[in-house]
Design a protein around this nucleic acid. Structure first.
Length: 836
RNA sequence: GGGCGAAUGGCGGAAUUGGUAGACGCACAGGUCUCAGAAGCCUGUGGGAGCAAUCCCGUGGAGGUUCAAUUCCUCUUUCGCCCACCA
């Protein structure tokens, strides 16, 4: 018997699999389909470290089991190669992004190849391939046609380091998610996608995603941030040195304007004692001359403007603001005049950029205390002690209670009061019901080179016109200088012969849009491409039959960091495609699983910076791809972060060595009949534990509990090691269970048993509940809740017999101390509990 | 500040409609093999007491429910992740 030589075996089978094309995606009629997908990587210059393949190993295991279970399996891989990381890498290493990307893809592909995945490389996609982004552009044009893509000049997030505008989702606490620079707000011309039109669908769709982790759904619904409330109009009037201007003439003549606010608590309107507008609110600019402390206000605005977003959030402990003297608002419910303030804790971009303030909101309460603005309590808490403090304005009460001093709301609790006042506002024309979302529209253009060109043309006469669909793809021109200009113009703007074109509508002179799409564009729909057929030139066909055959994805695996970006964006695009009839399902990912990060041995993230990166190539060379695959699945729960430990690889390698050695024990035992269809009429000594393992491993793979699947196989192997011989049938079952995890060694052992086909063309072992049943079980016997004895009995024993046996046990007699048991509890197959 | 999740031996972790805590692996110790070492194999391995049988304690901490709690409830500590003035 030769020693297990992983290098020779893995090389042999990789080559063999390539030649036999067993991983080509099949669409056999009558078989169910299973589409299992990883979030595709962007091919960075650093190559893979051992953390990257964890998710890929998991999907590969699922894919292989599903294949053996008789599914048509689609398990593809591709490259998300546009965007800032690829471009920054290229700039740093002085290579053209397209050359750098091609090189990195080759490295990634080689590294993935070492691990023996089942990818069908005929279906590989690359987002930077014009044949691919032809359809990215096409989808964008459909959105443009439907008014979902629009030009905006509003201030956006600008990263001075990356020299580009960014979406809200690209920020982390006011910093650029990519480079950590402080973000500025800069007014710029932008293309924006109206994702907010889909806010409600994106939110309600979450309820249908029963196979998604709850915390991811929670993150998405928080990000969408739905609030139900009302818009309320306040009249604003000028006052002169405290004396109101006499009310004669029309409101307009009086200089009266209205200030609209959004609130989720319209029921506190009777207690509104002041208002606050954001520093950028137009009310200030429009009424500047009427403001008596104009100078003070202007100084405050100047200060607020110079504060970055980061400062604004960091300085949140202390709220600042200034009153707009000379202006007053009229509380529409009470008719009282109330003061108006500006403060930067009110955000210009949310709601209407203005609020009314009352005693039942923490921030309003705090601000009023600081600036000694009067407050009026209108809700009485149930608890008298709390009420005492609330009444004296010592505590802000935000909970439910009975309204008072609120006219027709008196005596009502919050929910009823809200309903009633909204009806009243609507009746009087003072306001209306309103649903507000935190989700912002998606800033979709980047002032960078390495992205999909936005296929629009600006004509002096016709305005923005689509590039005709039959002219797609609009290819990204090759340029020498692709560094970002920093002026807010894309590097493409300098290529005049590309920019200057003619209008497709009127034929007149026109200019191309020079901004490109963001990194996230290509990943919004790539999973559809894997299912689209290609013609001889490699062009994709939007073949609805094929797309709708494979989609939606049955299992999608990737990192939790994509919860609020890729996964929201992709759902948005998919829902749009559904609405225009381009796809048949309205959610793209039926089931989602998160991969837990693999940390370095020192517990930190693997990074060049810490010099703690482990390269998979070396692990594969020393211990084998099978050991590496097995270890990454064995190290802990799949969705939990876990530190790498090379000693652990040694452990699973020993396990593989033991499996290898086991094959020796099988050589003299003939194969029983019926092996091919997994029927085992003869019970061997191993049958019970074997069938328990079949059940456990099959269920665990379905649930992605790989660590316990592996430990149960280890237990089986330990059992097999205890006996002198094992039947070939039993051994075959073991290697079939092992094969999705460790494909190379399993294939070698399978072929060593004389099989001519691949183990992955054989069928998955079927679990037989009858065969998995133990005939004898161990009962635990407790006295007063403490374990005092165990009892081996036949599985079919009846209750009376058990009780008699228990009471006759010497150990138990000792603990009963000749007292009469008060109660005897028998849990069938588990335990007997005696109470004295 | 808010939300979500977690806490089990020296380490990674297992155990859920509440039912024998510590499976499996690592590490460690003893043995075997060897001239010797490595590897492999066998045995042991939560803490404490005892020659032993056996007993006591034990799942971050404090209570509670129960015949029985790692599991359920209340409070609390620590850590991780996400969001962060969203009216």
């Amino acid at each position: 018997m030769q020693k297990y030589n992983h290098q020779a075996i893995e090389k042999k089978w990789k080559k063999n699999w390539e030649n036999s094309a067993i991983y080509k995606t099949k669409e056999v009629v009558g078989k169910p389909k299973y589409y299992v997908l990883d979030m595709f990587p962007y091919p960075s210059g650093a190559g893979l470290h051992v953390g990257h393949p964890k998710g890929y190993i998991a999907t590969d295991i699922v894919a292989r089991m599903k294949m053996m279970q008789g599914f048509n399996v689609l398990h593809p891989m591709g490259w998300d190669a546009f965007g800032l990381p690829a471009e920054n890498y290229a700039l740093k290493n002085k290579v053209h992004p397209s050359d750098g990307t091609a090189k990195n893809i080759a490295t990634f592909k080689k590294q993935l190849g070492l691990l023996g995945f089942t990818y069908d490389w005929d279906r590989e996609v690359n987002t930077t391939d014009p044949k691919y982004y032809r359809w990215t552009q096409w989808i964008f044009l459909q959105m443009f046609k439907k008014g979902l893509a629009f030009e905006s000049f509003a201030p956006i997030n600008w990263c001075p380091d990356c020299k580009t505008g960014l979406a809200n989702e690209d920020l982390e606490g006011g910093l650029c998610e990519r480079c950590g620079s402080e973000i500025e707000r800069k007014p710029m011309r932008q293309w924006v996608l109206r994702i907010t039109d889909y806010a409600e669908k994106l939110l309600s769709g979450l309820d249908t995603l029963t196979a998604w982790p709850e915390h991811i759904k929670k993150m998405q619904s928080d990000w969408i941030g739905k609030s139900e409330g009302a818009l309320v109009k306040f009249n604003v009037i000028p006052v002169q040195t405290g004396i109101r201007v006499k009310q004669t003439g029309s409101p307009v003549e009086l200089g009266m304007t209205t200030l609209e606010i959004f609130t989720t608590r319209p029921d506190t309107l009777f207690g509104a004692t002041y208002m606050v507008v954001a520093p950028e609110h137009p009310l200030i600019k429009e009424n500047l001359e009427k403001i008596s402390n104009k100078k003070e206000v202007e100084e405050y605005l100047e200060k607020a403007k110079s504060k970055s977003d980061l400062e604004r959030t960091e300085l949140q402990k202390e709220k600042t603001g200034v009153e707009l003297k000379g202006l007053k608002a009229i509380n529409p419910a009470t008719g009282e005049e109330i003061s108006i303030w500006t403060a930067d804790f009110v955000l210009g971009q949310y709601g209407t950029g203005a609020i009314f303030a009352d005693a039942h909101d923490e921030r309003d309460f705090e601000f009023a205390k600081k600036y000694k603005i009067p407050l009026k309590v209108t809700i009485r808490p149930n608890d008298d002690l709390v009420w005492e403090r609330v009444k004296n304005l010592e505590e802000c009460y935000t909970g439910d209670g009975v309204h008072f001093d609120s006219q027709f709301l008196d005596g009502l609790f919050i929910t009823e009061a809200k309903e009633k006042i909204i009806s009243w506002l609507e009746e009087k024309g003072l306001g209306q019901r309103k649903i507000q979302y935190k989700l912002r529209d998606w800033v979709f253009s980047r002032q960078r080179y390495w992205g999909e060109p936005i296929p629009l043309i600006n004509c002096e006469k016709c305005g923005w016109v689509s590039v005709p669909e039959n002219e797609l793809p609009l290819e990204l021109p090759k340029v020498k200088n692709y560094e970002p200009s920093g002026t807010g113009e894309s590097p493409l703007a300098t290529i005049t012969d590309w920019v200057n074109t003619t209008c497709p509508q009127c034929g007149g002179p026109a200019k191309r849009e020079t901004n490109t799409m963001p990194q996230w564009a290509g990943s919004c729909w790539y999973y559809l491409t894997y299912t689209m057929p290609k013609d001889n030139e490699g062009s994709y066909d939007w073949d609805k039959n094929k797309i709708n055959y494979w989609n939606p994805i049955d299992l999608y695996v990737g990192g939790a960091e994509h919860a609020t970006r890729h996964l929201i964006y992709a759902r948005f695009w998919h829902k749009f495609l559904f609405d225009i009839g381009a796809v048949a399902c309205d959610e793209p990912f039926t089931r989602l699983q998160n991969v837990g990060l693999i940390l370095a041995e020192d517990g930190r993230k693997m990074s060049k910076r810490w010099n703690n990166v482990i390269n998979p190539d070396e692990v594969v060379a020393e211990y084998g791809a099978d050991a590496m695959r097995l270890y990454e699945m064995f190290m802990g729960p799949f969705d939990q972060p876990c530190a790498w430990n090379t000693k652990g690889v040694v452990g699973v390698r020993r396990f593989l060595d033991r499996v290898w050695a086991l094959s020796e024990k099988t050589s003299l035992i003939p194969v029983k009949t019926g092996i091919q269809d997994n029927k085992f009429p003869i019970k061997s000594g191993m049958t019970v534990v074997l069938h328990q393992t079949i059940q456990k491993v099959s269920q665990d793979i379905d649930n992605l509990h790989f660590n316990t699947a592996i430990s149960s196989m280890m237990e089986l192997v330990n059992e097999m090691n205890k006996v002198d011989t094992i039947s070939k049938d039993d051994f075959i079952l073991l290697i079939k269970l092992l094969s999705p995890f460790a494909p190379h060694i399993s294939e070698e052992l399978w072929s060593g048993l004389g099989n001519k086909n691949s183990i992955f063309e054989s069928s998955w072992p079927e679990f037989d509940a009858e065969l998995a049943k133990d005939s004898e079980i161990t009962l635990a016997i407790q006295v007063n809740g403490k374990l005092r004895d165990t009892l081996n009995v036949n599985i079919d024993i009846n209750e009376d017999k058990v009780k008699a046996l228990v009471l006759s046990s010497e150990k138990i007699k000792k603990w009963l101390m000749s007292k009469e048991p008060k109660k005897i509890i028998y849990i069938k197959g588990k335990l007997v509990s005696i109470v004295v």
